[in-house]
């Protein structure tokens, strides 16, 4: 009898574990939105939206996202009927067990504000910065390389104007996601606006003094563009860089092509 109960218990455990693994792999999760809390707050004079699991741990890590446009109340409202990309990005904090703080790009260029955002979460074990459709992660990596444990940029690149006077001074760990045919933030750069993706990533690789790289191809999703990941490692600093190259014209999260949120979060977690 004990054996039968044990087998039943084991089967149940395995099915739950498999379900969780499946969830983590394909980036989709059956989210009960009531388990997420959305709060609009004002930090240092700027409106931010904080998204977190209701039962979040006291010391949960913090991910600050600098979004290109911040129509917070509409874009971030938890309505599964309108599951826009930002909603999917937000719900990933349930999987990763972290607090998400979304700020607008107009505030993101103010590095003292970004520092204030981090300070508003004093119990967070780690803090990470991600810029979406803008290059503020690069600007912040130049100006405040010690503030965040790792930096990410999705569909953005180094902003040309601040780069005229700013430079990378310290190694940082950085992940960049970009589609090769992004029509807005073009891979080769946009005159007077954004730098080339290769050169943006290359500048971080150079300051890190990474000495080796390895390129791997991710399992393609049916009908979607191929995704490859080049991982730059080695060097004295211990900081690494990942570049996800997406064969598509996506100018957003590139979450149709691969499990971008998991990949970024896994990179963050490793730092």
């Amino acid at each position: 009898m004990k054996k039968i109960l044990y087998i039943i218990a084991l089967s149940l455990f395995c099915s739950v574990a498999c379900e969780q693994n499946k969830t983590n792999d394909d980036d989709t999760v059956d989210v009960n939105t009531s388990s997420l809390t959305y709060v609009a707050e004002n930090i240092a004079g700027h409106e931010v939206v904080i998204v977190k699991p209701n039962d979040i741990e006291f010391t949960a890590p913090l991910v600050v996202v600098v979004a290109d446009d911040l129509e917070l109340k509409t874009r971030m409202s938890p309505t599964p009927e309108v599951p826009d990309v930002n909603f999917k990005a937000a719900e990933h904090c349930l999987i990763g067990r972290y607090t998400l703080c979304i700020v607008g790009a107009e505030a993101g260029e103010d590095v003292s504000f970004l520092a204030a955002v981090k300070e508003a979460f004093p119990t967070a074990s780690k803090a990470y910065l991600l810029s979406y459709r803008n290059g503020y992660a690069y600007t912040a990596a130049m100006q405040m390389p010690d503030t965040f444990a790792a930096y990410a940029c999705v569909s953005g690149a180094i902003d040309v104007e601040p780069y005229k006077t700013l430079s990378f001074t310290k190694p940082v760990s950085f992940v960049h996601v970009h589609a090769v045919n992004n029509p807005e933030c073009k891979w080769e750069g946009v005159e007077g606006k954004s730098a080339s993706v290769s050169l943006s990533v290359g500048a971080v690789v150079a300051i890190n003094e990474n000495i080796t790289y390895k390129t791997s191809t991710l399992m393609p999703r049916e009908g979607k563009g191929q995704v490859s990941c080049t991982h730059y490692t080695g060097g004295k600093s211990g900081c690494d860089v990942k570049l996800y190259t997406v064969e598509s014209a996506n100018s957003g999260w590139c979450d149709e092509e691969f499990e971008v949120y998991n990949q970024i979060w896994n990179f963050f977690k490793a730092h």
């Binding site: 180094i158 040309v160 780069y163 005229k164 430079s167 990378f168 891979w187 080769e188 750069g189 005159e191 730098a195 080339s196 290769s198 050169l199 290359g202 500048a203 690789v205 150079a206 300051i207 990474n210 000495i211 790289y213 730059y232």
Partner: peptide, 17 residues
Amino acid sequence: PVAVGAVAAANKCVYEQ
């Protein structure tokens, strides 16, 4: 590519053709 990228980064080249 990393060696060449280091020169480009030092020069602060921003565009690629």
